Simulated scan of single mutants.
Amino acid sequence: MRAATSAAVFLCLTTVLVHVLLVFLHVAPPNPLSQQYSRQVNAWVFPLFEQNWRLFAPDPESVNRQISARTTHTAPDGTVQVSGWFELTAVDSSAVKHNVFPSHTAQNMLRRAWSSYLEHHGGDDRPRSQRALMIQRYLTNIASERVAGRRGGSFEAIQLRVVTVPIAAPAPAGGTGVAAVAPGAADTRYLPWWKVEADSHGN
């Protein structure tokens, strides 16, 4: 029993040390060591442990995004059934509202996944790198798990719809209270249908 406990403690400490080292190499300025092991560092850090400096230089959101998902399921007779849209962002918002200690998952997971997707995909939604493909799968898994957790049932593919609404600029100090610049029109983006692995949503 003591040997098993010692082995578990050693394994935990080793994992923590490796994690700290890899994250340090990720956030440190480029150097020969981080460049030599960049593939291993990126494989460990992205997408779950990504770091940025917005804590020190905040970049406030200039838009509101509403992310929805719908799924398809093939019935025994071969017909394809398409579900209605499920509001993923609304679920996150309800989990955060009036919650003194909202979870990181409700606050940031979906939003950060979509931001990363925008950074690594063009307008045609084609992944052009392994990291882009990883982010796409990450976003797919988040949406699939949330739809399955709320609706249940099985499905083979999922599609996301993202409605982006610009936030109006605040009125100048001493003004009339009307926004200085009226918000632009909402933009709706439909992503491709993505296949879903059965084990990614618990089926």
Rank of each mutant, 00 (worst) to 15 (best):
C12F: 05
V27C: 11
S200R: 09
A179Y: 05
N64E: 11
L160R: 05
D92Q: 10
S83R: 08
A148T: 08
P29M: 04
G202M: 13
H120P: 00
D77G: 03
V163M: 09
V20L: 07
V18C: 11
M1I: 09
L133E: 15
A4R: 12
S129Y: 12
H121L: 05
T71V: 15
V20P: 00
P58H: 03
F10Y: 03
R65S: 05
A8Y: 01
V23D: 00
L21P: 02
A182Q: 12
V196K: 08
P166V: 02
S94D: 10
T188C: 06
V20R: 04
I135V: 13
L88H: 13
A4D: 06
P192S: 14
E87T: 01
I167H: 01
T176A: 05
V100A: 08
L22W: 04
Y117H: 06
A57L: 07
A3E: 11
Y37G: 04
D59T: 14
T71F: 03
H120I: 00
L48E: 11
T72A: 10
I135F: 05
A169M: 02
G152H: 13
D199N: 14
V162M: 10
P47E: 07
G175R: 12
R126W: 02
P183D: 02
R146I: 00
S93K: 06
I67D: 08
L110S: 03
Q36V: 00
R189Q: 15
G177S: 05
D199Q: 15
L22K: 04
S94M: 03
Q81I: 15
P183I: 02
R128E: 10
P76M: 12
N31A: 06
L13H: 04
S83H: 04
G174Y: 08
R161I: 04
P58I: 05
Q40W: 02
Q40K: 00
T89Q: 09
F24T: 09
A173T: 12
F86E: 02
R111C: 01
T164M: 03
D77K: 01
F10D: 07
I158T: 11
R161L: 12
W114Q: 01
T176C: 08
E197Q: 15
D124E: 09
W44D: 07
L55V: 05
S38I: 14
T176K: 14
C12H: 06
A143C: 06
Q40C: 00
T140D: 09
A7T: 13
S6W: 02
L33Q: 08
P102S: 10
N42M: 04
P60A: 08
A168P: 10
G122T: 14
V178N: 03
Q107R: 14
W85Y: 02
T164S: 06
T15S: 13
G122N: 11
A69S: 10
M1G: 13
L48F: 15
T105H: 12
Q107F: 01
E119M: 10
P32I: 12
R131A: 08
Q159K: 12
A95P: 04
T72K: 13
L48W: 15
F155P: 02
W53A: 04
Q66C: 05
R150A: 15
